[in-house]
Design a binder for these strands. Sequence first.
RNA 1: GCACCCGUAGCUCAAUGGACAGAGCGGCUGACUUCGAAUCAGUAGGUUGGGGGUUCGAGUCCCUCCGGGUGCGCCA
Length: 589
Amino acid sequence: MFDREQQQLEELILRILANHDIPAPEELKWSSIPFAGEWGAATAFFQVAADEARNGKPVKVPVRAQEIAELVRSNLTLPAGFTRAEAVRGYLNLYYQTGEFSRRVVDAALDDGEDFGRGTPTGELVMVEFSQPNTHKAMHVGHMRTMLLGDVAANILQFSGSEVVRANYFGDFGRDVIKWMWNFAKRHAGEAPPEQNVTRWMGDLYAESTKMLAEDPDGEAEILAMFARWEAHDPEVRELWRTTRQWSLDGFNEIYEIFEIKFDQLYYESQMEAKAKHAVMDLVKAGIAIDERENGGPVIVKLDELLGLDDETYRVLVLMRSDSTTLYGAWDLVLAKTKFEDYPLDRSIYVVDVRQSLHFKQVFKTLELAGWDKVDKVLHLPYEIVNLPGNVTMSSREGTVVLLEDLIREAIQRAYEVSEERNPELDEAARQEVALAVGIGAIKFPLLARDNTKIATFDWESALDFNGRAAPYLQYAYVRTNSLLKRAEETLPVSMTPEHELDPREVALIEMISTWPQVVQRAAQDLKTLEITNFSYDLSKAFNEFYNTCPVLKAEGEVRAFRLRLVAAARQTIGNSLRVLNIPTPEVM
RNA sequence: GCACCCGUAGCUCAAUGGACAGAGCGGCUGACUUCGAAUCAGUAGGUUGGGGGUUCGAGUCCCUCCGGGUGCGCCA
């Protein structure tokens, strides 16, 4: 419903209630009438009746709710734009003057264009940190979830009206990195990475380093020595580190580019590590961290003890090893503050898997105890992991991984084959483009369409299945809108109110389009990508059903003109939702 | 032991506390000389893991039990 009508109706309803000494509800909640065919808005009076009952009025709530609904209906002067009102089972249903509302919805979509659904600027600045890959390792499909969730959550926030900083935080340092360099120096000195598939090569060398270390009795000591040289800023070791790290970063960028993921701000663990020792010692001085190094122990924060909790809720955060090197908890203390020094953030979101939940609770609580005043602005957005069939967790160390490069290649290849089958006339260049768009979309959709709290299981068969509820379905609906508009060979008719009796599929399609702005707001509120995929799919479905029932080009006069505008509005809205999802919108396929 | 997550149709999953719990896949039946069939229509399939509670109203919130998963002092 449009704001103006809603406000008007609420005033009218509240006045009627007041005239009959019925207490006003806190708010009137509006929903659509859930029965197919006609189109309108509904509100329920159960809450009002329940409030009366609580205040001593001897009524049965459902009966009284219906009474009130009936009372409102009979006293309501319908504003312009509505045809009739009915009171049913405690609900007041108000039916739209379909033609008028249809015109306004279609006009809104076409006038606002790419901005249709965009929220008014809130002035809020929010950072979304996501992806966080470790250098010197491969990228596997398990890494995809933070990439997609983070990227699309950032899009949603941005489209809903916030300003967004996209941040990445690279694990570019630590024992595993040194181990990689140790093996490289011993067995691959002077080698350069291959032209393509750099991350695979980096990952293979990482696996090799693990294997070699297990067989090399001196390995452990050599790695420790190299680590010490790195810490001491030995030029040779640092140079090797910088060079090899860059290979990894270049490899990651290949993948970000193919997914069209961009970052505004890059952070590195090595940067945080450089400042972490000071931060830890400050906490010791403040009496928050306990230094057990004199007894051969680490530096820790005993959170439950500090908070006086009996339950083991926050446990113990370890910040520094007994050898005085810092741990990632210490780096996260520095990073959290650094973000707010770099930007005047209103919110700082961390898109990291659910197994880190305790870690972030500890880090944030430690910062709070240290008197940091931004702790109410930070949020860990957790998501469940991607497993292999049989509940096998992906692990580079175990070798139980599916590389992202392989999935991308296979998906594009499969999309190419399907395209050949479905649309043989396409020329080679166009088919390549379609294969890329469809392949990448098909990879992204299933993860975006899954609730963050649910474990995803990867298997090749379903990953390469483009049928049913999947990205190509949405893309196909989009392509069909294009095709119709192209064939129409005329400029779009000007704004018009449909005069024909709308088909139920037309109504359903228009109603879907009308909800898009609210869907965006709710998804931003909930930080859930699946609310966008649900919408995008339902909208595409509504369009396909419309397409199969209602002729457009073959219709005549007013019907054809209105339907052309409706198709254009559907095209715009499907396109906008796909852009928020960062799923490609091919013109043909 | 403590903390967190999941359990909905044969399978994979949806469902702002609101009217009759919906899709896809799989099964069966149909629609291309008609705007692109990567589509659509029809059909079968449910005690929402069990039991209590809150509420006018619970798949949704609370408690408890069962089943599955994750995390918890020097990896990240």
